[in-house]
Design a binder for these strands. Structure first.
Lengths: 113, 113
DNA sequence: ACTTTCCGTAAGTTGTGACTTACGGGTAAG
DNA sequence: CTTACCCGTAAGTCACAACTTACGGAAAGT
C-alpha cells in the first residue's frame, strides 16, 4: 500500500529533484524553490505529495517550516524491490527446470543448440 | 540516466501490474492482456515502456512474443536507493553534530527540552 | 493461396496531474 | 497595531500520457 505512493511520488522529475536536494540536510520551502524553474507554491504541493508518501517530514521553526528526509522512508520500496528480485530468480530457475525437463523427454539424438 | 526511466515505468498501476505478473514466468502479450481491464494494444505499449527501461526482455517464439523479467533490471533503482539512504544518514548525522555544537556553545543553565 | 492468429504501430480522444496566480492564515519585527 | 515574511490552499489552465479503434505485417494452419 505504501510503495505505490513512493513510486508515484518519485516518478516526477521536479519532485525527485526536490527530494534529492534534501540530501544536504533540512531546508525551507523558499530555499528549495529558489534556483528552480517552478514557483514556490508548486514546491509546496510537491512537498505535500512527498509527505503523504512518507518520504519527508516537517519541523516548524519560527515562521518557517523545515523539510527534511524521513529516515526509512524508502524502506517499503526497497522491500518491494527485493521481493521482485527473489521472485524473478525463482521464475528464472523454474524456466530453466522446464527446459531441461523438455530436453530429458526428448528422444536422444535430437538437435540441440 | 536509467533509474529515472525505471521510476517512470513503474509509477503507472497498469504497467506495474503487468510487470508483477511476469514474476510467474514468461508470458505472451495476449496472456498478459486477458483478465485485465485494458485492451491488448495498451498492454503492448506498456511492454514497450518496460522494455525501454530495461525491465523486461522479449523472445520471439513462432508467431508469438514471450515477455519475461530481465535479470538485474531493477539494479539501477536499487543502487540509487542505497545512495539516497547513505546520504540521508550522513545528513542526519551532520544535523545532530550541528545541534550538539550549538548546545556546547550555549551558556550553562539555558533552557533545554 | 486463403484464413487465422499474434502482435506492433498510427491516429485520435480524454482524464489526470503539474503548473500558474490569487488569496488568507500565522509568526517575527518595527 | 502595522508591516513584512514564510507558507499552505483554492481555482483555473494546459500539456502529456494512458487509453481506444483501425490497420498492416509475419508466421502457422487448412
Amino acid at each position: 500500500m505504501a510503495y505505490e505512493m513512493i513510486l508515484t511520488a518519485l516518478a516526477d522529475p521536479t519532485r525527485r529533484a526536490i527530494f534529492e536536494d534534501l540530501r544536504g540536510g533540512g531546508r525551507t520551502v523558499a530555499a528549495l524553490a529558489e534556483g528552480r524553474s517552478v514557483s514556490r507554491p508548486a514546491v509546496s504541493q510537491h512537498l505535500k505529495v512527498l509527505d503523504l508518501a512518507g518520504l519527508v517530514e516537517v519541523r516548524q521553526e519560527g515562521r518557517s517550516r523545515i523539510y527534511s528526509l524521513r529516515r526509512g522512508g524508502l524502506a517499503p520500496l526497497r522491500t518491494w524491490i527485493d521481493r521482485m528480485w527473489d521472485d524473478a530468480l525463482t521464475a528464472y530457475a523454474e524456466e530453466v527446470a522446464r527446459q531441461t525437463e523438455d530436453m530429458a523427454n526428448a528422444k536422444p539424438g535430437d538437435q540441440v543448440d
